[in-house]
Simulated scan of single mutants.
Amino acid sequence: MKIKRILNNNALVVKDQDGEKILLGSGIAFEKRKNDIVDKSKIEKTFVMKNSSESQQFEEILETLPEDHIQVSEDIISHAEKELDIKINERIHVAFSDHLSFAIERLSKGMVIKNPLLNEIKVLYTKEFQIGLWAKALIKEKLNIDIPEDEVGNIALHLHTARTSAGSMTQTLDITTMIRDIIGMIEAKLDISIVEDTISYERLVTHLRFAIQHIKAGETFYELDSEMMALIKKKFKKAFLCARQAGEFIKSEYGFEFPEKELCYIAMHIQRYYNRSVSL
């Protein structure tokens, strides 16, 4: 393969019978020029972007961002693919490299990164968060930048979104934000504090995530007969009212509606917390 364009010392563009490709590899373009033959032994990653727009964006990232930032982001992506045993959507190479470089730049200037969804991310995307902690250690080792847990949460979100079936970053953020808002309303309405890092908290957050995903997909996964629903409403009256108020808020803010059966299940989770808080 002949070199068509050099992007940096570790990235270049080639053209063969399959079209244009972006090749990455340590020193793959060092002291090379256009039309030189590529040393295949130095190819570590090959990218064939699905459209010219994605290809241009990736080339721009490779040309403008610091090479050590790009290398670290690619190391994180490779580690994530291995740990999750999946092929991550190629769009992550643009979005994640750009995000990580900007975060590192802000931290190096003493700026603070805050992630209001951190507690929910830890529970919802456990594997991705563990990879984020691995990334934290790598960034410290390679770049001498100590990223906070808030940024670890951001990394986890990017990795989760890059899963083929995970949807867009906007969808991921919407679901996570909805869950945070529901928990905040429960705390405010019942004047209780929902403690993170507990099994009950994890059950509630996980339940809400799967409920939202299934409802969005138009799937029914719980069956409660009218007698059981009536019993829950009567026995857990305060908890059901809280669940209904949270549902009304989510509908007004996000245009997302929980069916009454789901509100009954949420009420049972709320009651569990309420009983615990009263007994303390």
Rank of each mutant, 00 (worst) to 15 (best):
I37D: 14
L224W: 06
S279A: 13
K34C: 04
L190S: 12
K34H: 06
N154P: 08
A95H: 00
I76Q: 07
F221D: 13
S55N: 05
K109D: 12
N115M: 10
F210E: 13
V152T: 11
I266E: 06
L280E: 15
I270S: 06
L263P: 00
K4R: 14
L12T: 01
L100M: 02
A243H: 04
E60H: 12
S108H: 03
G247M: 03
G110A: 05
A243V: 05
T161W: 01
E20L: 13
E223Q: 12
A11Y: 14
Y265G: 03
E44I: 10
K45I: 01
F30L: 13
I76E: 07
S53F: 15
T170G: 04
I175F: 04
K114F: 08
D39V: 10
E196V: 08
D18K: 09
I76M: 06
E44M: 10
M229N: 07
E59L: 01
E44S: 13
A95S: 12
Q171S: 08
L204C: 10
Q271H: 10
H69T: 08
F102Q: 14
L157D: 00
L107I: 11
E54T: 03
I22F: 09
I194Q: 09
M111F: 14
V152Y: 11
K122R: 08
L138E: 15
R276G: 10
K34R: 12
V13C: 09
K4E: 14
M185I: 05
